[in-house]
């Protein structure tokens, strides 16, 4: 018998079946009434998915609304967005500012409102543990910026004042003679961290570090890096500062240092943003 031909036909049928089945998306959610919602979220570098699931379960229980989430982890915003388009997830968990930036550019998506859902993250810088001097300098600069209103001004310029479809302005970098301060940005979290069309890093985070450089009298050198390689770059001294996200202390169910790796020290938070959910618009 022609075994080769038969195998080819069977394999072909299996493959096309798999492709067709894959195109269905998760229809189950459209039919059921009390189904768990699949939510995409950006993976945290240091907390394992199991740890994170455990914590999110506790958080979910505190909400009065009747909803429950299953989390799917993505390491890139781009991948998560495509997951939503393909129907792999129903909602994306994003920062408020990033969600607004996205909704301004995509009218097929909308915020999904949940009552009582309040989950915030605080933005800070991370340095190596042995760099205590740098840590103190950064903390001092950040506290001063908060006190004299510079931080608030940066927030309005680079986040809240952005008009629909407008990209954040380029960040003027200070030109000083001081020792260079190497800072890693990822370009994967607009409008906080993005790379403009001309290839230059911009956004709120970059503006904050430009201001820090000015205050410390140090020459800021920006290095673009893949998000997942931030901790490696820091610990191997390829960069001096990376951006990190923590959970604000006080009243939260999530331990603040959930995502903090060993050998890393965090500065005071300089910005706080709520987490919101974005899904496809209901037809």
């Amino acid at each position: 018998m022609n075994l080769k031909k038969m195998t080819t036909v069977v394999l072909g049928a299996l493959l096309s079946g798999a492709v067709l089945a894959g195109c269905g998306g998760d229809r189950a959610n459209d039919l059921g009434t009390d189904v768990r919602t699949k939510v995409g979220t950006l993976a945290h570098l240091n907390a394992s998915e199991e740890q994170y699931n455990e914590i999110m379960k506790k958080v979910d229980e505190t909400w009065t609304g009747k909803f429950s989430f299953d989390y799917v982890y993505y390491d890139k915003l781009t991948a998560m967005q495509m997951g939503l388009d393909a129907g792999n997830i129903r909602e994306m968990s994003l920062y408020n500012s990033t969600a607004k930036y996205l909704l301004d550019r995509n009218d097929k998506l909308a915020l999904v409102e949940y009552k009582d859902m309040k989950l915030a993250d605080a933005f800070c810088c991370a340095v190596r543990k042995e760099d205590q001097e740098l840590l103190a300098e950064l903390n001092k600069a950040l506290e001063e910026m908060k006190k004299d209103g510079t931080m608030a001004k940066l927030v309005t310029t680079y986040i809240t004042d952005l008009k629909k479809g407008e990209e954040p302005p380029a960040v003027p970098m200070p030109e000083t003679q001081g020792t260079p301060l190497k800072i890693a940005v990822t370009g994967d979290l607009p409008p906080l961290d993005l790379v403009l069309a001309d290839g230059k890093a911009a956004g709120f985070n970059t503006a904050v570090l430009a201001e820090i450089g000015k205050r410390l009298g140090r020459n800021v050198e920006i290095v673009q890096i893949d998000s997942a390689a931030r901790a490696s770059a820091l610990s191997s001294k390829k960069v001096d500062v990376v951006f990190w996200v923590t959970v604000p202390t006080g009243g939260s169910k999530v331990p603040a240092d959930i995502d903090k790796p060993e050998g890393l020290e965090l500065t005071v938070p300089y910005y706080q943003d709520d987490t919101v959910h974005v899904g496809r618009k209901q037809q």
């Binding site: 890139k76 915003l77 781009t78 991948a79 967005q81 495509m82 388009d85 930036y101 996205l102 550019r105 995509n106 990209e167 370009g187 994967d188 979290l189 607009p190 993005l194 790379v195 403009l196 069309a197 673009q224």
Partner: peptide, 9 residues
Amino acid sequence: NTASRTMQP
């Protein structure tokens, strides 16, 4: 970078 900036992956 471009996909994130333009939100058109």
